[in-house]
Write a protein that binds this DNA or RNA. Structure first.
Lengths: 99, 99
DNA sequence: TTGAAACATCAATAAATCATGATATCATAA
DNA sequence: TTATGATATCATGATTTATTGATGTTTCAA
């Protein structure tokens, strides 16, 4: 029977599953990719991925709520930037391992 | 505006998002964790995570369909084992970076 | 060839997610 | 103060996903 000696604590597992769930969307992965290269406003990001503003705003909001991104208002614009280092690791991981 | 010079190809992004989506579930993460430590039958895995057989079978089936796991029948039992190396990387990543 | 163990699949409801269009908020310039 | 650009939120319907219990299948031993 599988041993569960050094098992990842349940709490962590659930937290991580939730974070992965947020990342697990093609548009959001693309946004994270862009954000690893700098800070960008919502409009810039929407243009970069060719999607309507409302959709991008919702994706960004979801990632922000999950603690994956940070947002800073500057005048009319809100600039998003990458926060969580694990995000970067996942993206690197994807670059390397994905077919 | 964000540059998309060395952008991850769209096809890869979608494939990866799909794979992450499959991983993004606490029970499935736990199963992958167990499977990184060896091969186990469905019954053994169900006992290890304290869930009904049908549920575990469905989780395993989903991961298998996504190419994350392999399954081998041996007599009455079906043994599952970890296939995708990216899975392992993700789990290591979780061990390290998750709070 | 019957029975039982081990898995897989199915069906159905509930719940979560997605995309979309409309509307609301916020900040600034005129 | 009003108009406008930038962003967020809301409401909706369509599509997935999760969970559960019941039913099928496969394998082997008696």
């Amino acid at each position: 029977m599988p041993g569960n000696l050094e098992a990842i604590p349940q709490e962590n597992l659930e937290h991580c599953a939730a974070a992965l769930k947020v990342l697990a969307h093609p548009v959001r992965l693309r946004l994270v990719e862009q954000l690893l290269a700098g800070r960008w406003s919502v409009t810039q990001l929407a243009a970069a991925v060719s999607k309507p503003q409302a959709e991008i705003s919702q994706h960004l909001g979801k990632m922000r709520a999950a603690g994956l991104l940070k947002a800073e208002r500057e005048g009319k614009e809100v600039y998003y930037g990458c926060l969580d280092p694990a995000c970067a690791t996942i993206i690197q991981c994807i670059r390397k391992h994905c077919p």
